[in-house]
Amino acid sequence: MLKNLLHSARQRYQVWRLAIAWGLGLLMVLGLGLPSQAHWADLAVADIQIENQNVNMNLTVPTGLFAQFDDDKNQQLSVEEVTKYQQELQKFLSEKIQLTAAKVKYDTLVVSSTTAKKLSSNLVATPDTHSNLLLQYQWAQPINQLQMNYDLFVPGVNTARCLAQVFRDGRVDNIVFTPISKNAALIDAPILQQITSFVGLGIEHIFTGYDHILFLVSLLMLGGSLGYLIKVVTAFSISHSITLSLAVLNIVSVPSRWVEIIIALSIGYIAAENLWRKEPNLARWQLAFGFGLIHGLGFSSALQELELPRNNLVVSLISFSAGIEIGQISIVLLTYVCLSYLRRFPWDLTIRRLISVGVIVMSAIWFCERAFIG
């Protein structure tokens, strides 16, 4: 009898320790160590104009990458600083950004300062984090083929990227450079290059959208059969795809601040519902569909900030949506496996409820940040 009681107490202790660890880990990792939404501090933008023998690149990059040239340490390269360190900047940039036309490197490169440009709605609020440079390349012969290797990223940041728009002969191509995808053709770029760029951007967006991840996890927290979970997630996918498309096409426009506030509230509501329900509700897919409409507006921010031209918007939109779905399916499968494992414990309901409490706390923090601070 005593042995059974000790064994039960020991098992209960192990379960509670696991629950506390999950709860604290959730708060520490998602609340303190990561931002409430994807941010653009590591983003660069390049507008590239190709004409005959010349390439002009209007480059907007985090000033931290040029800290050695920022004499006054104001996180912005001034005209004077760019002029003073022009030779050093040209050498530095020629190593980080390599352009070759039919395997021939440019003859000259001139780096100069340029006026500020709109980078994104987030960065307009904090323009002192980035600097604007004009890179002018010239070849002796007309350019027919052009390859670019871009390696100017914030060190150690996997989400760092450069969003490039290439203009030539009335055509506009969009390319996303990342630490694992540094090479691209700038002239007659294959459609597959654009597709893979935006699929990768969509995957990255879902995995760095920690609020969307918590919403998905909370939706599935009550468990259920795999078929039921697929039904719930499919409803969420269809609805957020609708509003994502409408927002990117500028058919629907909602202030991003209100979107982010409602997203925070939706996470809190789903997590709170997990506290009083023991089994999944058949109507939860309808709830997932409704909230998915709001989350789609949140997903759209990444593409809206790129100001994509209409001539290839459909390809970018479909590719980006596919990337989001790939990331989302990965999260759902991982959550399903974890929930199935939890069912081995007699206190799995308690663990799931404690996790839901942690999610409620996080949603409250995000709500306060978005409603009263940001």
Rank of each mutant, 00 (worst) to 15 (best):
L2G: 11
K3G: 09
N4E: 15
L5M: 13
H7K: 14
R10V: 07
Q14D: 03
Q14A: 13
V15G: 14
W22V: 15
G23A: 14
L27K: 06
M28L: 15
L30C: 11
G31C: 07
G33F: 13
G33H: 05
Q37L: 05
A44S: 15
D47V: 08
I48N: 04
N52K: 12
Q53C: 07
M57C: 05
N58G: 07
P62F: 08
A67I: 13
D70I: 11
D72C: 02
V82T: 10
T83H: 11
Y85E: 10
Y85I: 07
Q86E: 09
Q87G: 09
L89P: 08
K91G: 12
F92S: 08
I97Y: 06
A101G: 13
D107R: 13
D107W: 04
S113C: 04
A116Y: 03
A116L: 12
T126P: 00
D128I: 13
D128F: 14
S131H: 07
N132W: 14
L135F: 01
Y137M: 05
Q138D: 03
W139H: 04
A140I: 06
Q141R: 10
Q147Y: 06
D151K: 14
F153R: 08
V157N: 14
R161C: 09
C162Y: 06
A164T: 04
Q165G: 12
Q165P: 10
V166M: 02
D169T: 07
N174K: 09
F177I: 04
T178Y: 01
T178C: 04
I180D: 11
S181C: 00
K182D: 04
N183W: 00
L186Y: 11
I187S: 03
Q194C: 03
Q194Y: 00
I195S: 06
T196A: 01
F198M: 10
G200Y: 04
L201N: 03
G202C: 06
H205A: 03
H205E: 02
I206K: 00
G209K: 05
D211M: 05
H212T: 00
H212R: 02
L214Y: 01
F215S: 04
F215L: 05
L216A: 00
S218W: 06
L222Q: 05
G223H: 10
G224Y: 05
K231N: 11
K231S: 09
A235N: 02
A235Y: 12
I238Y: 02
S239W: 03
H240E: 05
S241F: 14
I242Y: 07
L244K: 09
L244A: 10
S245L: 11
S245E: 01
A247W: 12
L249Y: 13
V252D: 06
W258K: 08
V259G: 07
E260H: 09
E260L: 13
L265Y: 01
I267H: 02
I267R: 01
I267L: 06
A272Y: 12
A272G: 12
E273T: 13
N274E: 02
L275C: 07
L275F: 06
P280D: 02
R284W: 09
W285H: 08
G292L: 08
S301D: 11
S301L: 13
L306A: 11
L306W: 07
L306K: 02
N311T: 15
I318H: 05
S319H: 10
G323R: 10
G327S: 07
I329M: 13
S330Y: 09
S330F: 15
S340Q: 15
P346Y: 07
P346R: 11
T350G: 14
I351T: 11
I351S: 06
R353E: 02
I355G: 02
V357I: 15
G358M: 11
V361M: 12
A364N: 01
G374S: 13
